[in-house]
């Protein structure tokens, strides 16, 4: 890629005033570094995965309201986590976390366990239990 062809597209970086460094060749074909504000194919890829996350959050919310899953799943999605990451943050085995996804099991959880989830998600136990259904 030649230096004058390095894309300077609008991106999520632009609004945060961040630029990234790229390697490109100058007019003599020698390598140099240059800054880029962004590149459209990347911006679309990023917004595609943000849409994906938002859809997952919306799905989870609906399922909580339908009583199919516990709010833990919703907060897991909000925090961009998956089962592996959540289980290592709360320090429970994966099968145990998975059990806690069931509304019936979740309803009987002790505050001590709920607190671990709440702390991981940065919310209070009260919010973890009731913020969606209210």
């Amino acid at each position: 890629m030649e230096k004058d062809q390095v894309p300077q597209d609008q991106s999520n970086l632009t609004k945060n005033n961040v630029k990234e460094l790229l390697y490109a060749t100058d007019e003599n074909g020698n390598y140099t570094t240059t800054l880029s504000t962004g590149w459209e194919p990347k911006t679309i890829a990023l917004s595609n995965s943000i849409d994906e996350i938002n859809e997952r959050i919306a799905d989870a919310k609906q399922q909580v309201l339908n009583g199919e899953i516990s709010p833990i799943v919703y907060f897991m999605e909000v925090n961009k986590m998956d089962l592996n990451i959540l289980s290592s943050y709360v320090g429970f085995w994966k099968w145990r976390v998975k059990r806690h996804f069931k509304p019936s099991v979740f309803a009987k959880l002790k505050d001590k366990i709920l607190k671990k989830y709440a702390d991981t998600f940065g919310v209070s136990v009260e919010e973890l239990k009731n913020s969606i259904t209210k």
């Binding site: 790229l22 390697y23 390598y31 590149w39 990347k42 890829a45 990023l46 595609n48 995965s49 994906e52």
Partner: peptide, 27 residues
């Protein structure tokens, strides 16, 4: 589409210097 977008992100986004590190390697 999601898989493809993730692949492009891995290739371009997380500080690869462009082209999945190929330009750094050329340098």
């Amino acid at each position: 589409n999601h898989y493809l977008a993730q692949m492009v992100r891995m290739q371009e986004e997380i500080g690869t210097g462009g082209g999945g590190f190929r330009f750094i390697y050329a340098a």
